[in-house]
Design a protein around this nucleic acid. Structure first.
Lengths: 220, 220, 220, 220
DNA sequence: TATGAATGAGTATTCATTCAT
DNA sequence: GATGAATGAATACTCATTCAT
């Protein structure tokens, strides 16, 4: 016979599972149809519950969107911490991060974050999301700057470079189709390669010469 | 006494001026607050008219957004046609186009196009917009492909490359602040330079060597 | 042919007429069924319009109640100003005021004011109503105090006396039935007489003796 | 080891204690914020329990209000019975009753009764409350009539006199502040004195003369 | 042309109530 | 006894749209 505590933990867990199920469905619907065109009734129906049930787990429609954002941003944050390897060059860390970044952006919560504008939120929630977002932006910028400092990335405007990278990746949420032939991580790879190498053709002379160490080769 | 025909033309002109004023205000409001959070009353009030007046110029709220989109897309279309210079390399034509593209994206209608999702439109309008958008996408892709064909752009996936470019530029609409120090055309320049050269540092050996012709240098 | 200005004035007037009709119906419904049990649909239906029409004239359900209150309070305020006759004793002015007060309290707006609690209003509106109400209270208190000063009213606590008078009159809104035999002004008369004379029996010795001047006799 | 019967009695008692605690909290909340603006969740939270618990003690939100009313009315009823002293004049009995009446009205349940309108209740409960209320009204009226019959109260309309008295006392629930300087019984005393003596100034000739017997003096 | 007036349809939100545990 | 979870019903409020003038 299981202890009542276990049961309590189960309940807590079940509740969290349900809460997350709501978030997932919401993220998908918000992404697909937009925040305002998705009614709580829609979300509830897709989960086979009724609207007030959603209010048992969330206080607001806004809060639901906020949590979707936070969830996606949280994963980006986690990914950013995972690349803190002192033995890697800035570029290598950046590239590794961007790989994860793309995977996250092309997931349900990430897509919601990239495709639903935060001005759907009221001032309070919005400010908090903006803070988290600039945290992420800053993280990319820092990696870029680190790369520029250690010579693994060509000198330039780190801020603009970071925006360019984030933009190309975020935009992928617009055109990515799960059914397509490109997997998220393949997209990430191709985009980062493109960014690293640039579009200018490499002359034969340039091949291998003066490039960073083998370790930094992110070609797969 | 002026001829009544003149008057008719004047009227027609005045009507178009007003129509466009509505569109401009709408584009700004839609961009700033989102399509659904902007009521026709808002737009009307900002123009110092009343809501039904808008219906004199447009049949729908949707149509207003549709026309905003079309306006921006039209300018992109125009810009694309302006780069049809057979004597330029694919890359040069691409870079020239991207420069204009960025300027347009960072204008009122362009920003609206980049920031307001087309799923706010009903199926009819939406399909038309999607067609126009893929027209633009195709145009970039074609320039990329042309560059790859004539050797001015490194071989790769033209589609993905085009998406990356469009993404980085479109995303600029999210972070661009007119009050900031970077002008749209400067942003365009920096972004395209970044794309062309890539982030990898150029070895001294590489400088100038084997690079494309002087003509293709887009450094300003 | 009427001038367009006339027409504008007519419109304005018509609007005010309609606005007031809404208020009147609202006051009656709020009084009869309570603020929360009266839905805007109820009010609208009773006026043969639809709910959004009410929003054309008022911004809020709360505002409707607020205006009902204000309307009633405004009439009390007017009545209070009408009794500013320097040649009358305090008591005579008080009695005259109370007569009007009762008539107003037993009207639609007055009843609403007496029977619907102001805590139905949000803090903003409520504070304003409270201010108006204390204005009225103060007015009665001042008349009582004036009477005490000029000897036409027995000395005592003016505040408590004022509350007692207002209470007895306001409470009449609870039991008054328009169909009953007592008219509002008759009720006012009887209640004020009772207040003036008190319940203690008048000994024959007291009759006429030592009473205040003939002018102050409010016996009808 | 205590007998199980004792335990049952304890339980019963405990249940009643809790039931009454719910009623008291409800009465306070209903009085402060109104019936509809007080949710069962509010009441439950203030009691540190959850909403369904309330349903263990009551079948309805309405029933809770009904019981609050009944509780207050019950105390008025009790008070009325306590004044049945054949050796006292009608007026003295009336005055004694009013003293208790005021104390009750200025208590939690009494205030609820005076401030929350019975039209919040459905027809069934409401009818029962109205019956109890008219019982109370009738009781005051009877005392007034008795006083008029035995000469201790000046002749007049007993019904209207009773309403005036009840009104002035009930209304005190609106303005009474427990923190103020006037205690409920002092308020009762002042109000009844005012009613007995009236506002008209007593001429010196009248002092002491022809007034009712010492016994009837209710000055404290 | 432009507006005042009105409305239908939709939607977030609240809340009393129920029930299995 | 008490609670977590769920729901039906009601309701304020918004807004695109229409139409007579």
């Amino acid at each position: 016979m299981p202890s009542p505590w276990k049961r309590l933990a189960d309940r807590k867990h079940e509740r969290d599972v349900k809460r997350e199920a709501v978030l997932l469905q919401a993220a998908r619907s918000f992404t697909a149809r937009g925040f305002h065109r998705t009614s709580l009734d829609d979300i509830a129906a897709e989960l086979h519950v009724t609207k007030p049930t959603l209010y048992y787990y969330f206080t607001n429609k806004e809060q639901i969107l906020y949590e979707c954002f936070r969830f996606g941003l949280g994963r980006l944050e986690d990914a950013s911490r995972a690349q803190d390897r002192a033995d890697w060059s800035g570029r290598r860390r950046l590239v590794a991060y961007l790989r994860r970044y793309a995977e996250i952006i092309l997931s349900d919560f990430g897509g919601c974050m990239a495709l639903v504008r935060d001005n759907e939120l009221g001032p309070g929630y919005r400010a908090r999301i903006k803070r988290l977002k600039s945290e992420i932006d800053r993280r990319i910028r820092d990696l870029v700057a680190a790369g520029m400092a250690d010579g693994s990335i060509a000198r330039g405007d780190p801020k603009l470079t970071a925006f360019a990278l984030a933009g190309a990746l975020n935009w992928a949420a617009h055109w990515y189709r799960p059914a397509g032939e490109l997997s998220p991580s393949r997209i990430a790879q191709l985009l980062t390669n493109l960014f690293v190498r640039g579009m200018a053709p490499r002359s034969s002379a340039r091949r291998g010469a003066g490039r960073s160490t083998r370790t930094d080769r992110e070609t797969t």
